[in-house]
Design a protein around this nucleic acid. Structure first.
Lengths: 211, 211
DNA sequence: TAGATTGTTAATCGATTAACAATC
DNA sequence: TAGATTGTTAATCGATTAACAATC
């Protein structure tokens, strides 16, 4: 399972691994199967079986001819390769509806993500509680990030606040930012950013309606 | 600008066009420029200039050597090609925090999307108002979709309700579904679906933290 | 004009898929 | 055993990029 010396997994591979993971869990289509074949996975996700085998080989999963791949082994290997094992602490910047909706989404717990604090620039919200966590002032980002040893931040603030908040988070030691604000943010190369850009998805749907 | 006979734009192209659109607007880095070169766009989005020119050629935009591309022409062509021109009406299924957050996001108006109704299975919410719209019972999907002539639906309901709701929406004439519920849904081929699968994005960030 | 930029072809690159021997 | 499935190579496909003549 060691990945020493192997090249980092590309974005597309990570996304496919996450898809395999979702359908291999006990809530998926084969909750009781000990073994699942690449053809079954591919059929369910509407993709190619060779692709599935290649991806699994990439993270060191070996299958058994005539039998398939061990479901438990695949789940464990994906958890280990993607990094779903360790528990990660996240802070949410923006204690609005979106921040609340994300925090209350229970599915994150399965990926080891725990929300530990909120930040908001509205003094009226500071001091209140949201999804069981304290809402802090934005000015307290350095202190609270340090105290909670959070390493991931979820941005749900207005567009104009996104970059200043990102700067403060990076300075405080945050190493990954999940940005739901409608503005791209720039960070040092060592920090991972995912700009969700909700409207990119909308464009695809509107294109279909257009025809 | 006619697209008669041309092949449909692929997903990746649509996404890139949406990115160009975002940075060409008056809120972008060149609010006052009449012309913008492919090299400028590519530089800002960290991509290849030939790619930009190819994409623009695909939707019929011609540039001027030594000058660049007309910003207004690009914006208009992208709006037309992607289908951001006509006004589209959308219903939201699930009057929770996520539904509210999406409805209150003002950026959609720029893409011609207007939220016209909510649905919720909680009888306590039915009859109330959210983001200026009525909350209806799920059983009223057929009638309300017909009356509002909505053609897009945004799903923010719990996982187990996603497929039944999708079925009702499709039966009512909805032609595109934007699914934020944590469960993939299946629909007839004529209906466009985008499963947002929020956890796919999380996997990418956790992978970076892992190393 | 000289220099900058487009439009388009050809070359490269990488990702996907088909094929099939090895295996149980 | 016969048949099913993996693991891996080779072929295909499509997307990206480099190059450069045409243009203003």
């Amino acid at each position: 399972m060691s990945t020493t010396g192997s090249s980092p997994l590309k974005r597309a591979v990570l996304e496919r691994l996450a898809r395999y993971y979702m359908c291999l869990r006990d809530t998926g289509p084969w909750p009781d199967a000990e073994f699942v074949s690449s053809a079954q996975i591919a059929g369910h996700l509407d993709m190619n079986a060779t692709q599935v085998r290649k991806d699994l080989a990439l993270i060191g999963v070996r299958g058994r001819p005539h039998v398939g791949f061990s479901r438990g082994e695949m789940l464990a290997a994906i958890r280990s390769a993607v990094g779903l094992n360790g528990e990660r602490r996240a802070v949410v910047v923006g204690a609005g509806r979106l921040g609340g909706a994300i925090a209350e989404y229970s599915g994150f717990r399965e990926y080891g993500l725990r929300i530990v604090a909120f930040f908001d620039s509205d003094a009226g919200k500071v001091g209140s509680t949201m999804a069981g966590c304290q809402v802090h002032a934005v000015a307290d980002i350095p202190r609270v990030v340090r105290e909670t040893s959070a390493d991931l931040a979820i941005l749900t603030c207005p567009a104009e606040a996104a970059q200043p908040c990102a700067n403060a988070l990076v300075a405080a030691g945050i190493r990954a930012i999940w940005n739901f604000a409608p503005a791209a943010i720039a960070v040092p190369p060592a920090v991972a950013v995912r700009n969700e850009h909700i409207s990119l998805g909308l464009a695809e749907l509107l294109y279909h309606l257009r025809r």
